[in-house]
Design a protein around this nucleic acid. Structure first.
Lengths: 146, 146
DNA sequence: GTAAATTAAATCGTACGCAATTGAATTGGA
DNA sequence: TCCAATTCAATTGCGTACGATTTAATTTAC
């Protein structure tokens, strides 16, 4: 890449970074009524897929360490979204389970997000193209970081 | 989007978020020798394009508020990357200027980043496609947030 | 069976991000 | 001219992110 191209707008890293922050801001609007932050919503997404995950598995899926998850999960427990328990078989692990509130509110949360999205008519095929490209990008970055 | 599709891997928001964090991690490697963080590098990119910007203009380009920039710029000033000065004409504004160190080190920093990138042979046309798609995504998100 | 190696969560410290507020400087209208 | 509105940067408070370390529990090797 030529030196002249090293501008903010030509940087893929900045466009990804910017888009990520805009997404967070967008979800903030939708999630605020539920007292949820965006990373907390990601935890719910993972637990709705599979309940009762140990912290380290949750961390693997979201690419978070315990240094990020431990305080985040404590806040979510305080707000009634999940419970944290030690399994009898292995006291090192911490099993994270959804509360009834989390299971019951799921449709309501999806509806709130969907309502915000529906205001703009999103092109589904473009959504999928962008998603596929991002997955490739993630794979490349993970290779670069190994 | 059907409820079954509300999985982590199907979420564009998560893929963008994940890619952004991986980018930050990648740049951390390249920038660590210079005592620069990734957001600080973005500030340098903007100032290399145009030196002596007022804080609010820098914030406009990077989509940062003074709440983020003020402490970040102070850290950069401490590390010798820039100076902060009040113009005589308007004492509300804060002009941010590069130091000689910042101008002189520019080629070295670009070389360090390029060296990390070069280890993988990045497909330039794919880079540009992904960049274009992200710009569209950013435009959509900005429309949604208005 | 026990000490060493491994695994896992928690803790610590630093640097963002960002909503909301504050306070200082400037501008503009009556 | 004078004061109300506006424009800025700074501050406050909270919630991530994450490298590095610590502490506790379990496994493994001998």
């Amino acid at each position: 890449m030529a030196p002249d191209d090293m501008t903010l707008t030509n940087q893929l890293c900045f466009s990804v970074y910017h888009a990520s922050r805009l997404f967070t801001k967008f979800y903030k609007q939708a999630l605020e009524p539920f007292q949820l932050t965006y990373p907390q919503y990601l935890v719910l997404l993972s637990l709705w897929e599979e309940d009762r995950q140990p912290l380290h598995k949750l961390g693997e899926r979201l690419d978070f360490g315990s240094n990020t998850l431990t305080p985040l999960l404590k806040r979510m427990e305080t707000n009634g979204w999940l419970t944290r328990s030690l399994p009898a078989t292995d006291h090192r692990q911490l099993i994270v389970s959804l509360t009834e509130q989390a299971r019951d509110t799921k449709p309501e949360i999806f509806a709130a997000i969907h309502q915000c999205v529906a205001q703009q008519n999103v092109d589904v095929s473009k959504y999928n193209d962008t998603l596929a490209m991002n997955h490739e990008l993630i794979a490349t970055l993970q290779r670069m970081l190994k």
